[in-house]
Simulated scan of single mutants.
Amino acid sequence: MTLAAEILNVARAKGLRIATAESCTGGMVSAALTDVAGSSAVFERGFVTYTNDAKEQMLGVRRATLDAHGAVSEQVAQEMAEGALTHSDADIAVAITGIAGPGGSEFKPEGRVCFGLAIKNRPTHTETVEFGAIGRGNVRAASVEKALNLLKMAADT
């Protein structure tokens, strides 16, 4: 059984709905979940917010947060995850924002990805993973796996 199928089974058994808010993965987490037959019982919706304007318009990320911390930050990941809950009927939301590459900077290197996990009526969890300059496809794939693991952790609690 795939990790996505495990998440969906646990969430279905608990009556939980899931939303995603994705930037650098461009909907890959949503795709992993919806690849599983019957996912519509659990997967509520996905937001692909690649630009800062999309993050603001679709998820309610504040311009002040983007200006102060940049799109690739735990602060933005938190607001993305919380915005996904606010703008959906989901109980759990995972958010991803990062620099898949190529490129990056001294302060925000290639392979840095920030995650947010929001669960209704609980504090939002955020974390940053430094995947390194392992190539765009590999950063995106590793980010999807990390996001799915965060969803599994949330569904299991």
Rank of each mutant, 00 (worst) to 15 (best):
A93D: 08
G60R: 01
S39Q: 05
F131S: 00
L16E: 00
D35M: 11
E82V: 12
L59K: 00
M28F: 15
D156A: 15
H125L: 15
R112E: 13
M1C: 09
L8C: 02
N149H: 14
E110H: 09
G98N: 04
S88W: 06
D91S: 12
A81T: 05
V139M: 03
T126K: 02
V113Q: 00
A37S: 14
I7K: 10
E56F: 11
D67S: 06
E145F: 15
A100V: 05
S30D: 13
A118E: 02
G27P: 02
A68E: 13
S88I: 03
I99R: 01
A154K: 02
G101L: 09
T49N: 02
I96P: 06
S23Q: 02
K55R: 06
Q57C: 13
K120I: 15
E6A: 15
S73I: 08
G98Y: 09
R140M: 14
D89K: 13
G111I: 04
V94S: 03
T20G: 08
N52L: 08
V94C: 05
M153E: 10
A77F: 02
E145I: 14
E56D: 07
A54L: 12
A19S: 11
T49M: 04
D67E: 11
A95W: 07
S39M: 04
T2R: 15
G70Y: 06
D156Q: 13
A54C: 12
T2Y: 13
A147N: 07
T124Y: 09
G103L: 09
D35A: 14
G137D: 10
D53A: 14
A84C: 08
T126G: 07
T34H: 09
A133T: 02
E79S: 03
G27H: 05
A11M: 07
T65N: 05
A5L: 10
S40W: 03
H125F: 14
R63W: 12
G137I: 10
R140K: 14
T34N: 11
L66T: 10
P123Q: 11
V61G: 05
N9A: 15
S30E: 14
R62L: 10
G60D: 04
T2S: 15
K55C: 10
T86M: 09
N138W: 14
S105C: 11
A81W: 01
R112I: 15
S73R: 01
K55N: 09
N121T: 07
H69K: 01
G116V: 03
G111P: 01
V113L: 04
G135R: 06
D156V: 13
A141F: 12
A32R: 01
K120H: 15
A154M: 04
R136K: 11
A147P: 07
A71L: 04
S23T: 10
T86D: 07
A21H: 06
G137C: 09
L59G: 01
T65L: 05
A84H: 07
A4D: 04
R136M: 09
Q75S: 12
E82K: 02
L59A: 04
G15D: 03
A154I: 03
R12L: 13
A100I: 00
T20C: 10
L85G: 03
I96N: 03
